[in-house]
């Protein structure tokens, strides 16, 4: 059984469900899995709770330099343990991906991104990912230590954890250049009017809607159909609508009975947050847009024209 190390990310005392999912997956492969946690002033019993999620042992890097949750000091902290492992596994996440990438460069390891399946074969770890707009499944193995970065929501968390694992504190030496970037504040998320994860119908606004001035068209459609408005990162980053409305990898995961995507390309990081919707309607003028590959109803055309017509047709029912 190869030695598996699972990096477990956390934020403000909350363990990343993406990391916990990968930990549970690793444990299901049959061997003893080691979890790795980095932070500052970390409580041993909190770290030990990872035993309930499948860790046989927890390595804890606890150092003031790991306080800010930035990736580069974490690469320094995990490097030595990673070199001894056969594979280092990461759940999806912005910080997790940065750690995985930095580590791949640091130890010259292969990295498999967007993995939706992890298995053991020929004495090592193999990872499978959907690729090329999810039109093929590619299985990769590794020479030397392998680094696996999971796709968001690929692996479920053990929902009834019990038991603890022994915690071993590891020595940490953080390089000066790794500490050059400094956290300078978090923007408080605007209080959301509605919780989009509860909505039965969502109408999503993407960049194809042209600009913030057209968001009302989508709001009207949502109202006419009895749903709420959701959004892609592109329009949230651009300030059209607040972050609380974002669906996807760094936003919310939703599973409404109906999801109408207006001017949304269907990027993987959006898809992972809404692929479980009952029925997906895509309105996109580009017939090659990835969303048409997984929509139940693909409307090829101009969303600026179609959305108001749809609102009208619903109202006149």
């Amino acid at each position: 059984m190869p030695g598996l190390l699972v990096y477990v990310d956390h934020d403000e005392g909350e363990l990343s469900p993406q990391s916990l999912g990968v930990l549970a997956k690793a444990a299901s492969l049959g061997g003893e899995v080691t979890a790795f946690v980095a932070g500052s002033g970390v409580d041993d019993s909190w770290a030990g709770s990872l035993g309930g999620h499948g860790a046989a042992k927890v390595l804890l890097a606890d150092d003031p330099a790991l306080e800010g949750g930035l990736s580069q000091p974490i690469v320094d902290a995990i490097e030595a343990s990673a070199r001894e492992a056969d594979a280092v596994l990461f759940g999806a996440g912005v910080v997790s991906a940065d750690v995985a990438a930095g580590l791949a460069a640091r130890i010259g390891a292969g990295i498999a991104c967007e993995s939706t399946e992890i298995a053991l074969a020929d004495g090592g770890v193999v990872a499978t990912r959907p690729a090329l707009g999810d039109t093929v499944m590619v299985e990769s193995g590794f020479r030397g230590t392998g680094i696996v970065l999971a796709r968001a929501n690929a692996f479920p968390v053990n929902e009834s954890p019990s038991g603890t694992a022994p915690v071993e504190r590891v020595a940490v030496e953080v390089k000066p250049w790794s500490q050059a970037a400094r956290p300078a504040g978090r923007e408080a998320a605007e209080a959301a009017g509605v919780d989009i994860t509860e909505a039965e119908i969502l109408v999503a606004v993407g960049r194809g809607m042209g600009g913030p001035e057209n968001v009302p068209l989508v709001e009207e459609l949502a109202k006419a159909i009895g749903g709420e408005v959701a959004a892609t990162r592109a329009v949230v980053d651009a300030g059209w609508v607040p972050y609380a409305m974002q669906v996807g990898q760094t936003g919310k995961t939703v599973s409404p009975k109906l999801y109408i995507a207006c001017g949304v390309s269907g990027a993987i990081q959006h898809k992972v947050g809404m692929a479980n919707a009952g029925t997906i309607v895509a309105i996109n003028k580009d017939p090659n847009a990835p969303i048409h590959e997984f929509a139940d109803v693909s409307v090829i055309g101009d969303a600026l024209t179609i959305v108001p017509k749809l609102t009208e047709a619903l109202r006149s029912r």
Binding site: E139, G144, V297, S298, V299, L310
Partner: peptide, 30 residues
Amino acid sequence: QSIVRSVAPPAAKSAGVTIEDSGGDSAPQV
């Protein structure tokens, strides 16, 4: 250091309906 071992088609999924819109005429059908 990473090696592709195999390439396979994904699990088949049922194809969706495609509607070519012109000037918003798809609305009643949707």
